[in-house]
């Protein structure tokens, strides 16, 4: 099948390092196959830049299959571009028309310091997960198939939230730079399951505290996060996070002093 070719103008945010001054640079990208992904289009532009002896545009990417969460930037103000439920690596150029001008910018959030060009540091997400996004059970051998019963709706909900790839589109599309959708997905994923319920209260308290400490904003329920989410995490997850946090705050027990318990 013959490829259709389009020509584009890109306005790309260029910034050498975290503290350097950044600005938009304009590039013409010609003969872009409509079968190419957005990242392949930037690869093509980068090849031209390298041949000219210029610095190629830095951007994060890994699997290019929409499942790793590495890639992502703003295209014309939308996280991961205009399509719903997609990442920029799975966004194809057939969704753009010949002669279009596209503004490409990194995720914007104080909690995601810029590394270079379109790359931002998302380790704040890792620290939120580290604060409670795990289950501290002794895994041991694989348990018997039906030893722990999980109702189907609970399993589905856990799975839907486990789909979060931690790309950061929710934070980037939020006017407050809130990480409520990410944090809620991690919490609901674990707290819907019997193994995760045990530490549910501690998880809610610690993850919200870490989220605030990282400098993410509060949720204004604008819904932009869920609209931009490549995995369609629902706003209902944020409600569940809020509910879990209230319940955990009410249940909070005084700390047990060491040595008195035996």
């Amino acid at each position: 099948m013959a490829d259709k070719m389009i020509n584009l103008t890109l306005k790309v945010w260029r910034q050498k390092s975290k503290n350097a001054e950044g600005s938009f640079s304009t590039y013409s990208v010609n003969k872009v196959s409509t079968d190419a992904s957005f990242l392949e289009m930037i690869d093509q532009l980068n090849q031209e830049l390298i041949q000219k002896g210029d610095d190629p545009i830095a951007f994060d990417h890994d699997c290019r299959e929409g499942i790793c969460g590495s890639c992502g930037f703003m295209i014309n103000g939308s996280a991961h571009g205009p399509l719903k439920s997609t990442t920029v690596c799975q966004l194809h150029m057939r969704n753009f028309s010949d002669g279009e001008v596209l503004t490409v910018e990194p995720w914007r959030s104080s909690a995601f310091p810029l590394i270079k060009d379109l790359m931002v540091d998302r380790t704040a997400f890792d620290r939120i997960v580290k604060s409670g996004g795990y289950i501290s059970v002794n895994a041991g051998n694989a348990p018997d198939g039906n030893a722990v019963l999980v109702p189907k709706p609970d399993a589905d909900e856990a799975f839907a939230n486990a789909a979060c790839i931690g790309c950061g589109a929710c934070v980037a599309s939020c006017k407050n730079g809130s990480a409520a959708l990410f944090t809620s997905a991690k919490l609901v994923h674990l707290s819907s399951l019997p193994q995760g319920k045990v530490e549910g209260d501690k998880r809610a308290l610690n993850m919200v505290a870490q989220m605030d400490q990282e400098g993410f904003g509060a949720c204004s329920t604008t819904g932009s996060c869920s609209a931009a989410c490549p995995k369609d995490i629902s706003l209902v997850s944020i409600a569940k996070l809020n509910r879990a946090f209230l319940k955990a705050s009410l249940n909070k027990k005084p700390e047990v002093k060491g040595g008195e318990a035996g």
Binding site: S109, S110, A228
Partner: peptide, 19 residues
Amino acid sequence: NRSSKGIASSVKASGSKRT
């Protein structure tokens, strides 16, 4: 919230991802 956002994107989203 403004300080959490820092610099806002220079373009506002349109379509389904608009606030």
